[in-house]
Amino acid sequence: MKFRKKLGGRVVVPVALGVAASVGGMALFSQGAVAATSTGSSSARGANSITYGGTLGAGSAPVTNVKLDPATIALGKTLFVENCSSCHGDAASGTSRAPNLQGLGAATIDFWVSTGRMPLADPTVQATVKPSRFTRQQTLAIDAYVSSLASGGPKIPQVNLGSASISAGEGLFSTNCAACHTITGVGDALAGGVYAPSLYPATTTQVAEAIRTGPGNMPRFGTGNLSDQQVADIVKYVKYLQHPNNAGGIGLGHVGPVTEGFVGILIGLGSLMIAGYWIGGRAH
């Protein structure tokens, strides 16, 4: 009995815990396995079930344009003069501080305003995403006002994801987008203080607008580079990346081996070192 007493605290308990944890882990695996085997179909379902809040039904063109209401131009002008004109000028024709917006198209204006990048807090650094200052109606009014000043430029795209292919989207995304936004879309720092932003907060319209207008350092992909169908495919894949199939468990931010290394060293090895400290001898 002395044997059990002596060992009880230090050895038997860890063994029991280890076994229990292993069994618990196994239970989790089998769930994981079931999840894994069913993920393919569920991800397909998930992809197909991504709904778009627009008014377009399936079967229509992959990308259509939002029709701006001419009646909102007056409201848009008011908002523009209040919030934008101090840099861009009353007629959006640009000043020494900011570029001419005439002829850039509604999509450009809509992207910068709806993502909260405009109005700009600090013109010396890259515009950052922040909560938009305007409602959707107000934003559309500003778009209507600026695009009424001059013709040209891409119109606000409305993407029909129903006919888009997530598989084609993956191929196009990895070819055209991953080199800056990373293959998981999480974004990263580029040279010279510039960065490719995370795609996770973007809406379908914003992704399509970014592709077509090329905001900031991003190249512009016109219809000669990517067809409307291809844009819809990419948008569908980006929407998937925002909630990807994390069959393996906690996603760790999708930044790859950096977080994995920290988890492996700090949690994996760290917990085992604590366990060793627990069951091993200490200083005599």
Binding site: G18, S22, G32, G249, I250, I279
Partner: peptide
């Protein structure tokens, strides 16, 4: 016991963390 602890930590990571 330590082997089982190691196995369980690795199993938990493998099952829970991608």
């Amino acid at each position: 016991g330590f082997f089982f602890l190691t196995a369980s930590v690795l199993a938990a990571l493998g099952g829970l963390v991608q």
